[in-house]
Design a protein around this nucleic acid. Sequence first.
DNA 1: ACGCGTTACGTGAGGCGTAAGCATA
DNA 2: TATGCTTACGCCTCACGTAACGCGT
Lengths: 285, 285
Amino acid sequence: MIELAQLRHLAAFHQSGTLSQAAEELHISQPALSRSMQKLEEELQVPLFERQKNKIRLNANGQMAVEHAQRILEDVKEMAEQVRALDRRSHTIALGNCAPAPGWSAVPVLSNLYPGMTISSEVQEIPQLIDGLRDGTYQIITLPYALADEAFYCQAAQKETLFLCLPPKHPCAQKVETGMNLEEIDGETVLLFSTLGFWHSVHVKLMPHSRFLIQHDRDTFSELVNTTMLPSFMTNLSVKYFGKNNDRVLVPLLNPEASVTFHFLCRKENYKKLKPFFRQLPKGE
Amino acid sequence: MIELAQLRHLAAFHQSGTLSQAAEELHISQPALSRSMQKLEEELQVPLFERQKNKIRLNANGQMAVEHAQRILEDVKEMAEQVRALDRRSHTIALGNCAPAPGWSAVPVLSNLYPGMTISSEVQEIPQLIDGLRDGTYQIITLPYALADEAFYCQAAQKETLFLCLPPKHPCAQKVETGMNLEEIDGETVLLFSTLGFWHSVHVKLMPHSRFLIQHDRDTFSELVNTTMLPSFMTNLSVKYFGKNNDRVLVPLLNPEASVTFHFLCRKENYKKLKPFFRQLPKGE
DNA sequence: ACGCGTTACGTGAGGCGTAAGCATA
DNA sequence: TATGCTTACGCCTCACGTAACGCGT
């Protein structure tokens, strides 16, 4: 019976060109490799090498055998990877979010309800979220709107409201009671924390003339908020989950886009398992 | 390291459904198989089975693994087959003929010139011969005409001439000196020996109204030739190689199609090796 | 009680490394 | 002389079979 060890040996010889070198790379002795190849020839009932007294090289049969061997070894590797990936998927609940906030509330709930499961949570573009829910990349996704789809269960959850975050001396800070429209500061440079998901597109849409200084490090971001006069954003949820540890004024925004209700979706066939999660989702603000 | 033995064991289990039965089919003990599967799981770092106390079955991981395993085992089998086939080809000279006669002369010559080589000779349709020469199925082919092709070397050899083989009392038997045209007996039932190659199409073309009683067994054919009044065919070459052991009259045929010159072809890159053969080919009749 | 799967234990085949031999550059 | 492949020989691992056990039907 042909064994993978022999194919590994053959492939190694093909790479190295000599038995001695291949043996070294395989961490076996050179005679062992020599015998292994002899046995492979025996089992195929076909010579794979042209041998001279102290020289050996692949013949046409051997070259064809090497090609097959490489493919087979690749396939074995792929088998291991795919099976491991499948197993991994069965132990993880993948959550795909349109913005950071839904993850803040959902991840702890999932961890509690499904101990032993790995919970993954990431922010992604909306079309990829929907595709991902369909193809199994995600078990749960969040959208900033309701989506009617035969294959999906969809439930409304938290509402997130955007506030402009201004230094007290900013001209607009006085509108803290009345609220304001985002267009009023269009053109001003704004500090943003990265991976805001769909919120980013809202900003770009309502403030087409602004420059956005995107910070990927949370500490750097906080530092900049405190040490510059630049406007930035907070939301009811970011305050709830991370607090508001600065002296900035939170001015409500009157644009309808500044307030959304997150919806959690899963494939209908998964709803049964995820029901406890959906029942425990926070509602309202 | 995963080994093919483990994949064979896994596939066997999938087929059988129980370890005991699979072990029996594999001709190993049931505990050995149990351990083998445990080791495979260990190497994949993933459970492949759902185990109850005295029950075991594949889980989702296992099912995926089985599919991969089956494919891999198929590929290994195919590797062996293809390598063996390649080796076989390198030890055989495959001769493809448009009619039986060229093989009669060529095979002994090839056997002499290339001892140790297996000589295969078969009759095939002309288009398949040409394709086969191109794709390596044949090293040498014979055609009833010259073929000019950049890739081929082509050399004329023997001429074969068709005779009508009639019982002495047949009305046409008197034309043994003058010769006759095949059309004169169109409509009569004729005895044919099988695998005549392109000759068959000649018969059908010149005698469209005749019925052909095709015999695949040479003894039966000879028997029928001798015991019936039916016409049949012989050629200068069939007489030369097999003799004419009956009392039939051989009437020459005047149709131009009744006489052909065989041409032997090989791919130009093979000509060097086959040169001795081509130089020893019989010429003329 | 029987069938099936796992664990325990001793054994033997087979693959391994070392050493020696031989041919070539 | 150095390099590289093969053969000889003894060792040791590892996969095997037998036996014993546990559990469910």
